[in-house]
Design a protein around this nucleic acid. Structure first.
Length: 226
DNA sequence: GCGACAG
DNA sequence: ATCTTGTCGC
């Protein structure tokens, strides 16, 4: 089954795609925490014109690795803040096809609703795959955030245009907070709950740490064999 | 116009 | 994200 999706040719086209898919995203009713048993993390690593994707599924809340997959693609879109999804989406879709397990929830590295148009990578990926998602980013995108308290579990709201669009979460003491938002089929409170349930050993939730390592390994394996 | 700007 | 050794600090 060939993948006929092309990357947008212009920024304007990319933005209109976001505005269109956003409607579809908002249609999906949110899942609840009780239905989450398998959580996946998604990440990518770059080498020149190649990008390597990785997905790792773990059990929740036990954190046992259940399945994982990698994928490779050529880069087809530049990095533009606000349009980041168009850079990583193709390889993550390919990687998802290589996965044997359908996760109950997918964690993307980047923002979901906490986005200028409320449709970041996490929202976009979830909408395209039909899998509930949340976004976890290392930095806020557009708006500044109050700093949460020093204790693990402390949170502060990310507010834009008088709306709470995400949460800064102290996932590990002594490190900078992570920026959490809902994606496709999820709510912010659940997103925060999951992040706190899967972090602590590291600042980022475990599935993202594992996916990051796997993507880097896929890249080094590729470099070694050429 | 200038600076900011997920990864 | 990536290019990259040593180094300051807990």
């Amino acid at each position: 089954m060939p993948m006929l999706n092309r990357s947008p040719a212009t920024e304007e086209e990319a933005i209109s795609v976001q505005l269109s898919l956003r409607q579809q995203c908002e249609n999906r009713s949110p899942i609840d925490a009780g239905s989450i048993h398998i959580v996946a993390g998604a990440d990518a690593a770059y080498a020149r014109e190649q990008v390597f994707g990785a997905l790792v599924c773990i059990s929740f809340p036990e954190r046992k690795i259940l399945d994982q997959a990698v994928g490779q693609a050529s880069i087809t879109f530049p990095y533009i803040p606000g349009l980041f999804a168009f850079r990583e989406l193709p390889v993550l879709e390919t990687t998802f096809q290589n996965l044997r397990t359908i996760p109950d929830l997918l964690i993307a590295e980047g923002h979901g609703y906490a986005h200028p148009r409320r449709f970041g990578l996490a929202s976009h990926l979830g909408t395209v795959l039909g899998v509930p998602t949340i976004g976890v980013a290392k930095k806020p995108l557009t708006c500044e955030v109050r700093v949460p308290g020093p204790d693990r579990g402390s949170v502060s709201e990310i507010i834009d245009e008088n709306e709470v669009i995400g949460m800064a979460v102290r996932s590990k003491p002594g490190t900078r907070p992570v920026y959490v938002s809902r994606g496709f089929g999820t709510r912010l409170d659940l997103a925060v709950e999951i992040v706190l349930g899967l972090s602590g050993d590291h600042r980022m939730p475990e599935p993202l740490v594992l996916a990051d390592r796997l993507a880097r390994k896929a890249r080094s394996d590729w470099k070694a064999g050429r």
